[in-house]
Amino acid sequence: MNSDKQSVASTGFVNRKRKPRVGTILLIVALHILGLYGLAKAFAPDMTATVERTVVSAFTVTVTAPEEETPVTEPEPDEGAQGDPGLKATPKPVTAPTSPIKTRETPAPRASSTGAANTSGARDQGDGTGADGSGLGTGSGRDGGGTGGVAATKPQHVSGRINNARDYPVPPGGRDARRGTEVIVRVIVGVNGRASNCSVYKPSPDPEADRITCQLVVDRLGFKPAQDAQGNPVAAPFYWRQRWF
């Protein structure tokens, strides 16, 4: 106290010691730390990087964002889409009414006649198919077992002849080329005994000789006509064989 007073008396001011402030102290400490950090980063960058990662990871807070709910949207109907099917119609059972009218059963008609199975003619006698008379024939008016109009005998050659040497021309290879061959022609012998409608039934190697044979049979030969069972002349076929020797 006395010293303070002496100081004041000599200088005219009072010397009081002030207490340092907290903020000033913190500022000084921070400046020292920054200075040390700058020196360490300049001379030991790897160590400072490791320290930074450690400090940052200590203060890192992982924040998980809530999952966003996906809005559910109902599909819009297509303008041309098919509509929902309607209910299936089920028909009601229908029972046909019973007819009050009773129908009569019509009996089958009776057979027109009865008789033996072997009777087919217009008369009830005999087994034939003719329209008149009795017997076993197929004629329509005569008795007997004949067939009527069918030849019972064959035509017979009675006149005319064909000469191998004079009636045929000499073939290109000579007569020996035709020797040993034959031709068969077919004609129809009428009731007058004349032949007609000649055709080659079995040809020879010489078509020209076959043609000449047909012409000679029709023009030159005469026949006795065939006869039926009653002796009547009827037309019938005849086969003429011409051989060359």
Rank of each mutant, 00 (worst) to 15 (best):
K41Q: 04
G141E: 01
A151C: 06
A229V: 13
L221S: 03
S120E: 10
F43A: 05
V94G: 01
R175I: 04
T213D: 14
G231T: 14
T11Y: 15
E69T: 13
P66L: 10
R186S: 10
R175L: 02
D46F: 02
G115H: 12
N163F: 12
K5M: 08
V55H: 07
L36T: 06
N164E: 05
P172V: 02
N232S: 07
I101F: 10
L216C: 09
G121L: 04
F223R: 01
A96D: 09
G12C: 05
S120M: 13
S10M: 10
F238Y: 09
G222C: 03
K88N: 14
P109W: 10
D84N: 09
T138G: 11
A117W: 14
G146E: 02
F245G: 15
S3Q: 14
E182Y: 04
A65Y: 12
T98Q: 09
T181L: 08
V14I: 01
A177I: 00
V170N: 04
V72F: 11
P77F: 06
G190V: 09
E182Q: 06
S57G: 11
V51P: 00
W244M: 06
L221P: 00
D210A: 13
G83N: 12
P171C: 04
A131T: 15
D206K: 00
I162Q: 01
K154P: 01
P100D: 05
A235S: 12
P77D: 02
V217I: 12
R123N: 15
P97V: 03
A235V: 06
A226Y: 00
G190H: 08
S112H: 09
R243E: 15
E68Q: 13
I101A: 06
P172H: 02
P169I: 02
V158F: 01
T138E: 07
Q242K: 03
H32A: 07
G80N: 11
P169D: 13
T60G: 06
E79M: 11
V150S: 07
P172M: 01
K224M: 03
T90G: 01
A40F: 01
T129S: 14
